[in-house]
Simulated assay, not measured.
Amino acid sequence: MLISEAFAKFGAIQKNVQWSVSAVSESNELVVSLWNQFFEKRSKDTMTYIDKVSRWSGAGNNEFTAYLEKAFRDGLPVRAIIAKSKQPEVIAAGGAASNLGNTFHPKTDWIGEITEWDGDKFEIEFRLDK
């Protein structure tokens, strides 16, 4: 599935399909594309995404950071698109991801909240949306 199709599943439109990895949906939820390798299962009922915005410097980073700040400040729910790369080591090193054969899967049954945000490090805890 294309990343733009994954965003559309949540009623969200990227500002730029070449580099946007976040958007706010029609229902005022933050929709973010998140790398599968940075998820941890911390409890039976949740999955937690842990990362730093400083890990990468792609074109969408400023937009992503601004959306995280807004969602944290305003308490917006978060929806996840799971991104998976054939070259996770490039992702971990903060390299350019656009030509790595990535796949995108919208997790329409998950709802999340930002539980930590210090302007760099962030954690988003997801649970099943009942």
Rank of each mutant, 00 (worst) to 15 (best):
residue 124 I to D: 04
residue 110 W to H: 01
residue 81 I to W: 06
residue 62 N to V: 13
residue 41 K to W: 02
residue 110 W to F: 12
residue 78 V to L: 12
residue 8 A to Y: 05
residue 13 I to C: 00
residue 94 G to P: 05
residue 21 V to S: 01
residue 73 R to E: 10
residue 119 G to P: 10
residue 122 F to L: 09
residue 112 G to N: 04
residue 2 L to S: 15
residue 12 A to N: 00
residue 90 V to F: 01
residue 6 A to K: 02
residue 88 P to V: 10
residue 86 K to F: 10
residue 26 E to G: 04
residue 48 T to P: 06
residue 22 S to Q: 03
residue 82 I to M: 10
residue 34 L to P: 01
residue 31 V to P: 03
residue 129 D to T: 08
residue 16 N to C: 13
residue 123 E to M: 02
residue 90 V to S: 05
residue 77 P to N: 05
residue 130 K to H: 15
residue 93 A to T: 13
residue 121 K to L: 14
residue 35 W to K: 04
residue 6 A to L: 08
residue 12 A to K: 03
residue 107 K to I: 11
residue 126 F to P: 01
residue 54 S to H: 12
residue 78 V to P: 04
residue 63 E to R: 00
residue 46 T to W: 00
residue 26 E to S: 13
residue 107 K to W: 10
residue 9 K to N: 08
residue 95 G to I: 11
residue 73 R to F: 11
residue 116 E to F: 12
residue 113 E to L: 09
residue 55 R to H: 04
residue 112 G to K: 01
residue 57 S to M: 02
residue 14 Q to G: 04
residue 38 F to W: 13
residue 53 V to P: 06
residue 97 A to I: 09
residue 43 S to R: 03
residue 91 I to E: 00
residue 52 K to G: 07
residue 55 R to W: 01
residue 70 K to A: 14
residue 8 A to M: 00
residue 8 A to W: 06
residue 3 I to A: 06
residue 4 S to F: 06
residue 19 W to K: 05
residue 49 Y to E: 00
residue 11 G to K: 06
residue 123 E to D: 10
residue 109 D to L: 00
residue 14 Q to D: 06
residue 125 E to H: 11
residue 50 I to L: 15
residue 86 K to C: 13
residue 116 E to C: 12
residue 108 T to Y: 01
residue 15 K to W: 11
residue 15 K to I: 12
residue 117 W to L: 04
residue 110 W to R: 10
residue 77 P to E: 14
residue 91 I to Q: 10
residue 60 G to N: 06
residue 45 D to P: 08
residue 3 I to R: 03
residue 118 D to C: 06
residue 18 Q to L: 08
residue 81 I to Y: 06
residue 41 K to H: 13
residue 3 I to T: 05
residue 52 K to R: 15
residue 99 N to Y: 14
residue 48 T to S: 12
residue 52 K to I: 13
residue 12 A to I: 05
residue 15 K to A: 11
residue 80 A to D: 08
residue 22 S to L: 00
residue 100 L to F: 11
residue 125 E to D: 13
residue 24 V to Y: 05
residue 80 A to M: 07
residue 75 G to T: 13
residue 47 M to P: 09
residue 39 F to P: 07
residue 34 L to Q: 06
